[in-house]
């Protein structure tokens, strides 16, 4: 089955990002297709490569990047949510004249249309938030 996942909260503050990651991992292991993980609201903070949690804690951003690498997952950060919260890729850096970018491997920034498109194409949509 094709499943789209929405993540509405950032890492660590709420369990939502952890729950989403465990769900996506289990769905992939059971042979389902995750056609997109769309990060919205504070969820875009999952994609910051500057995240540096203590070494004895899980690294939520790296877990997503690793899962994307292993399964060719499409991890999309909402562009409008990113702009509000300071998440910047190379294109956005150039467009807005910023001095840095901070998007982790495996993530890309795109529009809200990607959420609608993924929802139309999927058999199920599962949201995680707070």
């Amino acid at each position: 089955m094709k499943i789209a996942v929405v993540v509405n909260e950032g890492p660590y503050q709420h369990q939502a990002a952890d729950s989403a990651w465990h769900f996506v991992s289990a769905a992939l292991a059971r042979g389902h297709e995750i056609n997109r993980v769309f990060f919205y609201h504070d969820g875009v903070n999952n994609g910051s490569r500057l995240t540096t949690p203590p070494q004895d804690d899980r690294h939520i951003q790296q877990r997503w990047s690793e899962l994307a690498r292993q399964h060719n997952l499409d991890l999309v950060l909402c562009v409008a949510a990113c702009q509000r919260r300071g998440l910047v890729d190379a294109d956005e850096k150039k467009r807005h004249g910023k001095d840095a970018d901070n998007i982790a491997d495996g993530f890309r920034i795109s529009g809200l249309g990607q959420l609608i498109e993924a929802s139309v194409e999927a058999d199920r949509v599962v949201s995680f938030g707070d």
């Binding site: 499943i3 465990h22 769900f23 289990a26 769905a27 292991a29 059971r30 389902h32 199920r124 599962v126």
Partner: peptide
């Protein structure tokens, strides 16, 4: 349910 059961419920 565990996470596998969660996935099964979704389907």
């Amino acid at each position: 349910v565990d996470y596998n059961g969660f996935v099964d419920l979704v389907t």
